[in-house]
Simulated scan of single mutants.
Amino acid sequence: MALSTLHNVRFAGMSSCVPKRVISNLEDCPPSQRSERERLVRNIGIKTRRICPEWQCFSDLAFAATEKLLAELQWQRNEIDALIVVTQSPDYLIPSTAIILQDRLGLPHGTIAFDVNLGCSGYPFGLHLLGSMIAAGGVRKGLLLVGDKSANINDPLFSDAGTATALEFSADAAPMHFDLNSDGSGYKAIMKPIGGHREPYAIHHGIPTRDDHGILHWPNDLSLDGPAVLSFSTQRVPPAVQQILEYAKLEKNNIDYYIFHQANRMINETIRKKLGLTIEQTPSTLHDFGNTSSATLPITITARLRNTLAQDRHKILLSGFGIGLSWGACIMDIDGACLPELIEE
């Protein structure tokens, strides 16, 4: 069990950025798919999504979120000791997107900067990684950038977003509790099989096929095993939430808000009901923003809770789960954090 507690780490602030373009799962689809889309929207709960233009990268959204956060925190750039980027949408295969953003953001050469290849579970893992560096004493202030460019106009599930989170050393900070897990036996449930060294991209991978609705599908499109993901999420997440609560010596009613990865309505409602939580305890952004991969937890905080969390201290539980397969949870206090309004870039 990868249970751990970090001390002296304060959640200083967070900023989220989405593209301006809004896609409707009902309006922006071929007429032949309208009835099927209506049924799908009822099941997955996603009506609109955000999509980047072709020229815009995840890093552009993360850059805008970081600039806004640094300005409102009034942090000096020479104070930033670490920059961690969690994404599966890098600018290039190499070099690291974090290295590029270190220079683009004007951070000092002494800033530790590197990428982490994780998707839907990435936010708790990233918080633990950066928090551990701060707790160890080598880093005083650090930035965690998470998100992806994964939207496709024909895919009703995914949306684009980039976010920035600031953590800092504080001797008065409440402890952060973590539970992080992986099960690589299920790696085929969510994957892009083409383009790595196992199966390099070749000429024949550039030939699409057309489905019954006339939609083109490419060999390097995301492969998603829906039933396997549903089973994994609904079986793994509720026990993991119970486990971290027990580890932290907390009752369910000690948590003000439970923020789950925004996978789809069926998965999230099953998890909520298994845990006996109310709709008010589990804010959702699925309807308006879809599945933004590792950014769903920050997006939900920004879009649904920023005004509430700005008042007094609140204890929240974050749960991310998905690609890998992997799942992680974090319990932390938010007290006096800087939470700017959602940015549309």
Score class of each variant (00 low, 15 high):
L130E: 01
W55M: 08
G142N: 06
I80N: 00
L130A: 11
G122Y: 03
D91F: 08
S159F: 03
L61C: 04
A113V: 06
V85F: 12
N154G: 12
G138C: 09
L101V: 06
N117T: 13
L69G: 07
S59E: 01
H128N: 15
C29P: 00
F58C: 05
L83A: 05
G122C: 08
V139Q: 04
A71C: 13
Y123H: 04
Q76L: 08
D155A: 07
N117A: 12
V86P: 00
N117Q: 11
I51C: 10
Y92N: 14
L127V: 02
A71L: 14
I99P: 01
D155V: 10
I84V: 15
S59A: 15
G131Q: 01
I51S: 06
F158A: 11
E79Y: 03
A98V: 05
P95I: 01
S24I: 09
E36T: 14
I80K: 02
G131V: 09
G142E: 05
D148V: 07
V139G: 09
L130D: 02
P30D: 07
R37S: 09
L69Q: 03
G119H: 01
I51Q: 08
L129A: 13
V139H: 03
I84Q: 02
G131H: 01
A98D: 02
G142D: 03
V86C: 10
D28W: 11
P108V: 03
C29Q: 13
P90I: 00
F114V: 00
L70K: 08
N152L: 13
Y123K: 11
F63A: 12
P124H: 01
R37E: 03
L118Q: 13
T87W: 02
V86Q: 08
R77G: 06
Y92T: 03
L129F: 05
G45N: 09
A135D: 04
P124K: 09
R77W: 01
R104F: 05
S35D: 14
P90W: 07
F125I: 10
I80M: 07
G106Y: 01
F58E: 04
G45S: 07
T87L: 06
L107S: 08
E36I: 13
Y92K: 13
A98M: 09
L40I: 09
P30H: 04
V41F: 04
V116I: 15
D91W: 07
V41N: 03
K68C: 13
D28K: 12
R77I: 05
Q56C: 13
I84F: 08
D60W: 04
E54F: 08
Y123W: 05
V116R: 05
N25M: 09
L83F: 10
L26E: 02
I84G: 02
V146A: 14
N78H: 15
P108G: 06
A98G: 08
L129I: 11
L105I: 05
Y123S: 00
D115M: 06
I44Q: 02
R34W: 12
L107Q: 10
K47T: 11
D28H: 10
Y123Q: 00
R140D: 13
I94Q: 14
F125V: 01
T87V: 07
I46V: 12
S96G: 09
R39M: 09
S59M: 06
F114A: 12
